[in-house]
Design a protein around this nucleic acid. Structure first.
Length: 278
DNA sequence: CGCAGCGCCTGAAGGC
DNA sequence: TGCCTTCAGGCGCTGC
């Protein structure tokens, strides 16, 4: 018998590969469509969904984990999926109690936002005006953009004395990374999650690992451990490719040492004590 | 201005 | 069986 996994099946949150998968599926289906009507949960996290009524969607972009729909009146509809958010297109509004918002497109279909835990949020702002969305305004280059460079990444990591995983989750050195892909990249790069400073060479390895693991996650359509579904309701398959996240107690795929997990800054990090020395 | 600490949420899982 | 507690965690906000 393997030792127990960390309590319960791990949750997952939509990170860059999951959000980009959804974006690619939705973009051609909502572009050019008019939002005839909209509805939302009463929470102020979601009521801005209704601010987009009467506009036409011109395109759907993404920055980090934020989906950004450009509207024809110069504003943008911004959607963050939080931990359990999903977006699907359906011919009608269902009685699903976890639908927190929907937009009626051209009197034909509905774009539905489902979020069990309500950690996501929706905003409607003048294009590019993100001062009321602090994480979006302050986040670093998107991990799959050309602006994400090894040198810029190293310099960004140098400016903070927080632990490396905490810096990654802040979205400041790079945008789009969450606990799953961050854990995988740290394992790939051989960096212990308690570290606060790393060398230029280690930063370059981590940069390459992040790009590699996020591209792999995207190629696999995202990671579905429990909640994540893409815009067609389908599951990703990258959970089958995870080498470290959720594998505490199981042997490291490189050196067979049992992986360990520990809480740093209120987040569970799994790592190999042999391959990721302090 | 960086950052620590807290709150938001709910279902799942463990304890008794 | 069922009630109660704990856990998970991205991000916004507050205050040091």
């Amino acid at each position: 018998m393997w030792p127990e996994l960390p309590s319960g099946p791990a949750d997952e949150m939509p990170e860059l590969p999951e959000v980009e998968t959804i974006r690619r599926q939705l973009a051609p289906r909502i572009q050019g469509r008019r939002i005839q009507d909209a509805h939302s949960h009463e929470s102020e996290k979601f009521t801005p969904a209704k601010d987009a009524i009467g506009t036409t969607i011109q395109g759907l972009n993404r920055r980090g984990k934020y989906l950004i729909a450009s509207l024809n009146d110069g504003r943008e509809l911004i959607i963050h999926l939080g931990m359990t958010g999903s977006l699907t297109i359906s011919p009608d509004t269902s009685d699903d109690p976890y639908i927190r918002a929907w937009w009626h497109l051209d009197d034909t279909e509905y774009l539905a936002y489902r979020d069990v835990r309500r950690f996501g949020r929706i905003r409607c702002v003048p294009a590019g005006q993100y001062d009321t969305i602090p994480t979006l305004a302050a986040q670093g280059p998107d991990a799959l953009s050309p602006e994400f460079t090894p040198d810029g990444f190293y310099q960004a990591l140098r400016t903070s004395r927080r632990r490396i995983p905490t810096q990654l989750l802040s979205q400041k050195p790079v945008a789009g990374v969450g606990n799953i892909y961050g854990t995988e990249a740290l394992w790939m790069a051989g960096i212990h999650p308690a570290k606060r400073q790393i060398s230029r060479m280690a930063a370059e390895k981590l940069h390459a690992a992040l790009v590699e693991v996020l591209r792999a996650g995207l190629a696999n359509g995202g990671t579905t451990l429990r909640d994540y579904r893409n815009a067609d309701g389908g599951e990703g398959s990258h959970q089958n490719a995870l080498a470290c996240y959720g594998r505490s107690g199981q042997p490291c795929l490189r050196c067979a040492t049992p992986l360990q997990h520990r809480t740093y800054d209120a987040r569970t990090l799994t790592f190999c004590p042999q391959c990721q020395p302090r």
